[in-house]
Write a protein that binds this DNA or RNA. Structure first.
Length: 522
RNA sequence: GUGCCCAUAGCUCAAUUGGUUAGAGCGCCGGUCUGUGGAACCGGAGGUUACGGGUUCAAUUCCCGUUGGGCACCCCA
């Protein structure tokens, strides 16, 4: 035997039992989507790499299956949202709003495989284009929760956040729109690693940039900019940097934040120029310190909704900011109650979700208790992305939100809760006995199939005993025997393997699926 | 991207601490049994010991690399 060709790392073969189980699961999800007016859409598995770079986080960009093919930059889709919005921009802009789309299919992310994570997995989800406000957000969140509930996953936890809080602050600081992304990213860093993590990250950036410029005349000057000279982020300043250093510092920060500089109609040089002008204004140091202090408080706001809402309102009041996001969250919570949801809900204003296209309400759904001992798996994620359509070329702003869930993870959660994954088997096994030709057997099998049965035909010409044994082991409940006697009489023998009862039926009057005189009903 | 564990027949595991031709159970296929299945008995197929190097008279066994699998971190569905 030749050496075996191995499966590509992170990819999975899905065997019939699992495959059938998933199919049922997906059908049920799609039925729920359809019940709310979401119609199925398919988009290509491959897209222009740029589609996913325009507004994705650094993390996402790094884990993309992207390659050059005949001078084109191609990527396997890492998600559906950008593709659906691209399709909408291309052909859907004339249609009545809102547009509701549902999708399901494989996506690809180059991550390290482990339990609940492979490099190809199946996302099912919806996008709601052209509707803003809590009612739209609540509909999408409801769909996520109801989908899981309908499948029997009732012990989920909803984690709900809102990027508008940090957005309100940033707007008040009159910083460039593009700096916003860097702060959102900082929020994630702060939340994940605390101040230390953020400082370390900044030092990494600065020292990496030192190595970068080490070949020019500026290298000696840069040697003075040791990482240790930036002990505190609040002291971030461009003072004492040469023009070139300042320029590359800003570039590094932006790139670190995953900001795509090529996606605008301004050149990277122009963008950096504008940023430098703003950063050099005397207020800027103060603004950044201000913003980071705000962020530190913000990421502390997570937990039980009523408490967190009050605390958030207080924070906004302290900074003289509008409490619009809090009112939205309140309304969303009210509407979720109207939908009849009673899942555990945690508000988390520090939620950032890596993807940089979110703009408002955003959420995740996890199994089990968050913070409890049980391993918590994220099943769904989504939120509001009001800017994406225009970033992808829509001629008007299109408010939008959506969510996606991981089919494999849901299946695993169901199995962990005792769901049965049954081996799919045919209803009938058709075999001969004695001297009966294959043509006659085929005729019988085809008659049974036309009657609605899933019938498997004996192709090995085995002994009857061997065939009975095979059907038994394959999980086929009934064996139809067509031998010389039956050929002469124009009937079949219908043998129920479980009860060992045999009945005879004329070929002209075969049993129907779901009729009460057979024991092999579906 | 970082760290840890693992790899012998389809499956579960052996192989006397480096020593003949790598074995067993289960499973699969066939026969005993040319029209009746969960049994028994008999036989058969199936391995470049994941792959590639190295050490050695000799490697499944020791070392390195690669690939694949598992787990945690990071991040996410």
């Amino acid at each position: 035997m030749k050496s075996v060709i191995e499966r590509i790392r992170g990819m999975a073969d899905v065997w019939p039992a699992e495959r059938t189980f998933r199919e049922g699961l997906i059908t049920q999800l799609q039925r729920g989507f359809a019940a709310h007016g979401y119609r199925p859409i398919d988009t290509p598995v491959v897209e222009s790499t740029e589609l996913f770079l325009r507004k994705s986080g650094e993390e996402r960009a790094a884990q993309m299956y992207a390659f050059d093919y005949r001078n084109r930059q191609i990527a396997l889709r890492p998600e559906f949202t950008a593709s659906v919005v691209r399709a909408f921009v291309a052909e859907g802009q004339g249609r009545p709003l809102p547009q509701r789309y549902a999708y399901c299919g494989p996506v690809f992310r180059y991550e390290k495989p482990q339990s609940g994570r492979s490099r190809q997995f199946t996302e099912a989800g919806v996008e709601l284009l052209g509707a803003r406000g809590p009612a739209a957000d609540a509909e999408v969140i409801h769909l996520a929760l109801a989908s899981l509930e309908g499948l029997g996953l009732t012990d989920c936890t909803l984690r709900l956040g809102h990027l508008g809080v940090v957005g309100a602050l940033l707007a008040s600081l009159s910083l460039d729109d593009r700096v916003r992304d860097w702060f959102l990213w900082s929020m994630e860093q702060l939340r994940a690693r605390g101040d230390d993590g953020l400082h370390r990250n900044l030092r990494d950036l600065l020292s990496a940039q030192q190595g970068f410029g080490a070949n020019g005349a500026a290298a000696t000057a840069e040697a003075g900019v040791a990482a240790a000279d930036f002990p505190d982020l609040d002291g971030l300043s461009l003072d004492g940097l040469t023009e070139g250093q300042a320029r590359s510092t800003v570039l590094s920060l932006l790139r670190g934040a995953g900001v795509e500089l090529g996606g605008s109609n301004r050149s990277p040089e122009e963008i950096v120029e504008r940023l430098l002008v703003k950063l050099r204004r005397p207020r800027v140091d103060f603004d950044i310190a201000h913003a980071l202090a705000f962020l530190r408080r913000l990421i502390g706001l997570h937990g039980e909704p009523t408490t967190v809402l009050a605390d958030t309102r207080a924070l906004l009041a302290d900074y003289g900011l509008d409490d619009g996001p809090v009112r939205e969250l309140e309304e969303v919570l009210t509407l979720l109650q109207a939908y009849g949801h009673h899942q555990r809900i945690i508000l988390d204003l520090g939620l950032g979700r890596g993807l940089h296209y979110y703009t408002g309400v955003l959420f995740e759904v996890h199994t089990g208790e968050v913070g409890g001992r049980e391993a918590v798996i994220q099943l769904c994620g989504g939120g509001r992305y009001d800017d994406l359509a225009q970033i992808l070329g829509a001629r008007a702003p299109i408010p939008a939100c959506g969510f996606a869930c991981g089919v494999e993870r849901i299946a695993a959660a169901l199995v962990a809760r005792g769901a049965l994954v049954a081996e799919p088997a045919a209803d009938l096994f058709v075999c001969g006995a004695g001297q009966v030709g294959m043509a006659d057997l085929i005729a019988v099998a085809e008659r049974l199939r036309r009657a609605g049965w899933r019938a498997e035909l004996d192709l090995r010409g085995r002994r009857l005993a061997a065939n009975l044994s095979y059907a038994e082991r394959a999980g086929i409940p009934v064996v139809v025997i067509f031998g010389e006697t039956e050929l002469a009489a124009g009937e079949i023998v219908w043998r129920d393997l479980a009860t060992r009862v045999e009945r005879r039926y004329p070929l002209d009057d075969l049993p129907q699926p779901n009729s009460s005189d057979t024991s092999a009903e579906r």
